[in-house]
């Protein structure tokens, strides 16, 4: 393991600290939204403070939850589902 690797491993031990760094970053971005506004809004909703923050958060949450719990369950097959059609796979070989 080289020095850079050790540095990252060390940083990982401070996950709790990094969590607060992330929260501070989010708060800072949101605070800046009070000062910075679009000149030519693409859509009227952009004028609301935190619109894009909410869009990102809710969008990702809805997407993640629906896809990972419902859609993925509906579409899921075993990893080797198609292997019976694979001309290159023998019985004892699973790729």
């Amino acid at each position: 393991m080289n020095g850079l690797g050790r540095f990252f491993i060390e940083m990982r031990k401070h996950a709790g600290l990094w969590k607060w760094v992330m929260f501070a970053w989010l708060a800072l971005a949101l605070a800046l939204n009070f000062l910075i506004h679009p000149h030519h809004a693409h859509i009227p909703e952009e004028h609301y403070i935190g619109f894009w923050a909410a869009f990102g958060f809710v969008g990702a949450l809805v997407m993640g939850v629906i896809l990972k719990t419902a859609v993925s369950e509906a579409l899921k097959k075993p990893e080797d589902y198609y292997d019976k059609y694979e001309p290159g796979l023998k019985e004892d070989d699973n790729g």
Partner: peptide
């Protein structure tokens, strides 16, 4: 950034599983 927050909230849901999605 807030997409990142959403990931943080649902990181246990996002765990990948060995599966093939048709």
């Amino acid at each position: 950034s807030f997409t990142g927050l959403a990931f943080y909230v649902m990181r246990r849901i996002m765990v990948p599983h060995e599966q093939r999605n048709v």
